[in-house]
């Protein structure tokens, strides 16, 4: 459903120019959950912002269901890393979730129902009338996920979604992501710098190099489901994949580990 070919992006011009993306090729099939990992400063966010239409890349092509992305696609949602700045502090949680639904042409009643449903799916059924800042960080990020769910996007982009929460909350949110992906037929692209997370959550892990970023690895994750924070992480395939992704991220040739 998502096709990216030879995507390049350069910030600025002249001697101070910085090339973040150096020709990215990527295809994502419908319903897939693809994790994109890379060292920090590898242009992960640039890639995501290009797909979201928030940034016009300097070169290459992105198509979504066959149509080129020129502005922000209609059925696309983003979960940003910084939940405190992505949720609007002057609106209640329920308003935050339901406001975008106006664009979907839903009536007030429908919107309220969709918002309540989405909040229930993320385990915040009773938080609708609260304000975002009354909730903990993890709960705020749940609200952002609920907002994205209620919006029923065909493509969900998650930009380091669990980067600003503690380890325990992070695991909960990872499991929540696995749970909600089954609810609607969503394609999810999740960006992270955490190697374990990418393997644990993804069907596929795409590894980017340092800037100018290219795809240096594309691994299929075949772990027995349902995934579980303890058992999955002990699984030998998990350990192997984690090592492989780790070497790719650090720039070690992939042929070396397979020789071992």
């Amino acid at each position: 459903m998502l096709e990216i070919s030879n995507l390049t992006h350069t910030y600025g011009s002249g001697p101070s120019a910085h090339t973040a993306l150096g020709g990215i090729d990527l295809r994502v099939a419908e319903g897939e959950l693809v994790c994109i990992v890379g060292p920090s400063g590898s242009g992960k966010s640039t890639l995501l912002r290009s797909i979201a239409g928030l940034l016009r890349p300097t070169g290459g092509r992105i198509t979504l269901d066959g149509t080129p992305v020129a502005q922000i696609p209609d059925d696309l949602a983003v979960v940003f890393q910084d939940y405190s700045r992505s949720l609007f502090p002057w609106m209640s949680v329920a308003d935050n979730v339901s406001l975008p639904l106006r664009r979907k042409g839903q009536s007030r009643k429908q919107r309220t129902r969709s918002a309540a449903e989405a909040l229930e799916q993320v385990g915040l059924a009773s938080a609708g009338s609260k304000y975002p800042w009354e909730l903990s960080g993890g709960m705020q990020q749940r609200v952002s996920i609920a907002r994205a769910l209620a919006y029923r996007p065909s493509l969900l982009l998650m930009d380091e979604p669990f980067g600003s929460v503690d380890a325990q909350t992070r695991e909960d949110l990872e499991d929540l992501t696995l749970l909600v992906r089954g609810l609607h037929n969503m394609t999810i692209l999740l960006i992270t710098h955490d190697i374990d997370e990418s393997v644990y959550v993804g069907d596929r892990v795409v590894v980017l190099s340092k800037a100018p970023a290219r795809v240096v690895g594309d691994l299929r994750v075949d772990l027995p489901g349902p995934r579980d924070q303890i058992n999955t992480r002990e699984h030998s395939d998990f350990v192997r994949l984690r090592g492989e992704v780790g070497r790719l991220v650090r720039g070690v040739r992939p042929s070396q580990p397979s020789a071992l």
Partner: peptide, 25 residues
């Protein structure tokens, strides 16, 4: 910027952007 981008991603109309995002902030 994050507020503005959120509004763009979720396709807020001009009026919504003004009333629900710019004015409150």
């Amino acid at each position: 910027r994050q507020h503005v981008e959120t509004a763009r991603v979720f396709g807020f109309t001009r009026g919504q952007r003004l009333w629900r995002v710019i004015l409150p902030s």
